[in-house]
């Protein structure tokens, strides 16, 4: 426990002093992207990883959060930072009816229903031009010229989401979530109100997806429906990030986000548009050979390295 505490403190301290070590604003931009994707991954992981409800439509919540912030600036001309409150709340409010409808379905049916929800949101926000400005998108002004404030706000958002998931999973609800994932019928027969606890899992998940969306809006200053509600670039990419890092692990989504963002930036300069191809190949290989992701198979990987040093016979006993 003490070891874990020190490990965690070191990570947080590194995260805090990192932008002072790396002063280039390009690298700081990459760090901020990692924070956004990490938050999204952690949020998806709560519903998809721990509770086992694989959602193909989390772009709906991300986009609602982003538009919650953007529309405030667009219609009321107030700072989009208020969207950091309004955006996630909007995502939660919309998530409740979605959950009540979609949680009646299971497994692949649920995944498909969420896919439809995400696409419906994208189409509505594209077509409802008077309210959302349609495909022209929403443009706001930059608040800070330096990247540092964004970095720290993003870091707080990410740590908040990780802490929330950590506390949830350590509580009674967390055990309920895992039992729903492992066997829903058994969970129900043991007296767990499964639909209610799926909702308890969806609401924080939608909240943090919306928060990430609102932060994205404030950082990028420009959103349009085809960016924030995108099926391949948001909904599916979140899943890929979490799968890569490790499903149902606390730090897996963050590791996945680091791999995804670093890889895509690395290959974007050398391979151009093929950077997603490399990422896709890596995802396929990870699913085939490390089905629980990098963090999920961490023990196996550790063992692999340790085995080289120690006597093989000690493994047998």
């Amino acid at each position: 426990m003490l070891k874990k505490f020190w490990f965690l403190s070191i990570i947080i301290i590194i995260a805090i002093i990192l932008p002072f070590i790396v002063q280039s604003s390009y690298y700081q931009h990459i760090f901020i992207l990692i924070l956004i994707w990490g938050t999204l991954g952690v949020a998806w992981n709560l519903l998809g990883g721990y509770t086992g409800q694989v959602s193909f439509g989390h772009a709906a919540f991300f986009g609602l959060g982003a538009y919650g912030a953007g529309l405030l600036a667009f219609h009321l001309h107030i700072s989009p930072w208020w969207g950091m409150i309004v955006g996630p709340v909007a995502a939660v409010i919309i998530s409740i009816p979605i959950g009540l409808i979609c949680f009646r379905l299971r497994g692949p049916y649920f995944a498909l229903a969420m896919l439809a929800v995400g696409e419906i949101c994208r189409l509505i926000f594209t077509e409802w031009v008077p309210f959302t400005n349609g495909a022209m998108g929403i443009l706001t002004l930059t608040t800070f010229s330096s990247k540092l404030p964004y970095y720290y706000i993003g870091l707080v958002v990410l740590l908040l989401s990780i802490y929330t998931v950590y506390r949830l999973m350590a509580s009674r609800a967390g055990y309920y979530f895992v039992s729903i994932r492992e066997d829903q019928d058994t969970a129900e027969s043991l007296g767990i109100p499964t639909t209610k606890y799926k909702m308890y899992s969806l609401i924080p998940s939608a909240f943090f997806s919306g928060l990430a969306g609102a932060f994205y809006m404030n950082y990028m200053n420009y959103i349009e429906p085809s960016i924030v509600f995108s099926l391949p670039d948001v909904s599916i990419m979140i899943i890929m990030v979490v799968i890569l890092g490790g499903v149902a692990t606390l730090w897996g989504p963050v590791v996945g986000a680091i791999i995804y963002v670093v890889l895509s930036e690395l290959f974007r300069s050398s391979l151009g548009s093929a950077h997603l191809l490399v990422f896709g190949v890596i995802v396929c290989l990870v699913i085939m050979y490390m089905p629980n992701g990098v963090m999920g198979e961490a023990n196996k990987i550790k063992k692999l390295f340790r085995r080289k040093g120690t006597h093989i016979g000690s493994e047998m006993t």
Binding site: G48, G49, G52, V54, G107, P108, A111, R181, P232, I236, I239, M240, I243, V247, A248, S273, A274, L276, L277, F279, G280, V281, V283, C284, I287, M288, P291, N292, G296
Partner: peptide
Amino acid sequence: LIGKESILPENQVLLTVGIMLVLTETMRM
């Protein structure tokens, strides 16, 4: 993937997503 242990039962579905990504990006290249 058949018979492989994993946390999520939908692993094959997620693999098809990866394949989709690979096919789309190959064609784009």
